[in-house]
Amino acid sequence: MTSSLDDTAFAPWKKADAVPLIRFEGVTKRYGDFTAIDNIDLNIYEREFFALLGPSGCGKTTLMRMLAGFEDASEGAITIAGQNMKGVPPNRRAVNMMFQSYALFPHLTVYDNIAFGLKRSDMPKSEIAGRVEEMLRLVQLGKFARRKPHQISGGQRQRVALARALAKGPKLLLLDEPLGALDKKLRQQTQFELMDIQEKTGTTFVIVTHDQEEAMTVASRIAVMDHGRLVQVDTPDRIYEAPNSVYVADFVGDIDIIRGHVAAVDGDIAEIVWAEGKPPLRGTAAPGLSAGGPGALAIRPEKITISKDDPGAVHNKVRGKVEDIAYLGSMSTYVVLLPDGVRLKCQMANVRRISRRGIAWEDDVWLSWTDTAGIVLPE
């Protein structure tokens, strides 16, 4: 996130007296017998860049459409800035929405696309030109003002759509997979541009995405969804480092999961028995974890060390054979097959030239990690 959102002062969700801009209270949405949103409670605060993250069909777009006014809740209440949105049509809400397709008018210039909504609003005509120029400066498209959409790039069209959505000064901007049509490099560049624009305007952004990396990059907080429910709502670092379930751990980022039985919990450390005759593995105990039930050790590949030599007196070490190697430029991923059939991935930064790499296919290797590198979760 940008520096202002990294600042520990920006954490209104931690403050008892903070008033949310958006409240979902017991919100359920049904389509016949199908429950798309299942009894959700959620607060989103002013100036947040909030991400709804989940696979297709998890309910994130339905949640956004209810915020926009395109769908009504079957049960519960949605309030924006203290006003109950029940029965309030989309055009009467202080909300704007930016679609994946951008929906620009092909026959209008960049300038006229941005001005389109303003000309149909109650803004005095004398102020429209100044507002459009302000938006053009914000998205750095002043020299493209007289071009039409087909004469500019995909990333520039995305910025035109963003400028048009922000022109009327909404309290809340909804972004539905806004970067899906861009190639990876441009998408990454545009993510930082979005963050910068959100910070400058102070507008609350809510983005729907299935791209974990995108959510982790732009969001102040992330709501991970599954089958119409909120599985975890937290900051990106907490979602990544302290997932509250195997589902979240497995969905967000790359991870190794070793399933077994929780043998002991001692303070912040838990032990899991995972294979017959093998020493138990240790990890940070998830909140509320208790011994005696099934569990899983979840560990990120970059936290695992690979070596041809025995790492010595460490609790977490396993031996296996290198089954595959993926060279990814700045790092390499090693897939290691353990004798009992478990496959683990580890990642190493390529600080040396590939020709000097000391580990090759079919090599016998040791994998090791610290006691707190992974997290033991209930199954």
Rank of each mutant, 00 (worst) to 15 (best):
M1Q: 09
S3I: 12
F10E: 01
K15V: 01
V27Q: 14
T28V: 13
T28P: 03
F34T: 15
E46K: 08
A51W: 03
G59R: 05
M66Q: 05
L67P: 04
F70H: 03
E71M: 15
S74F: 02
A81R: 12
G82Q: 02
M85H: 11
K86F: 06
G87H: 13
G87Q: 10
V88F: 05
R92M: 08
R92D: 08
M98S: 14
L108G: 03
V110M: 03
Y111M: 03
K119M: 13
K119Y: 12
D122M: 09
M123A: 04
R131N: 05
R137K: 10
K143S: 13
F144H: 08
K148M: 08
G155E: 11
Q156K: 04
A161I: 12
A163R: 14
K171R: 14
L174A: 02
L175A: 13
L182S: 13
R187C: 15
R187V: 14
E213I: 15
T217H: 07
V218E: 06
S220E: 03
I222S: 02
A223E: 14
T235N: 04
D237L: 15
I239P: 02
Y240P: 02
E241F: 04
P243Y: 02
V246R: 13
V248I: 00
A249T: 07
A249H: 00
A264R: 12
D266Q: 13
W274F: 10
R282A: 03
T284I: 14
A285G: 09
G288Q: 08
P294Y: 14
K303M: 10
T305Y: 15
I306V: 11
I306P: 05
S307Q: 06
P311Y: 10
V314F: 01
N316V: 00
G320N: 00
D324Q: 12
I325S: 00
M331V: 12
T333F: 10
V336Q: 11
V342N: 00
S355K: 11
R357V: 06
I359C: 06
W366A: 08
W366H: 01
A373V: 05
G374W: 03
G374L: 00
I375Y: 08
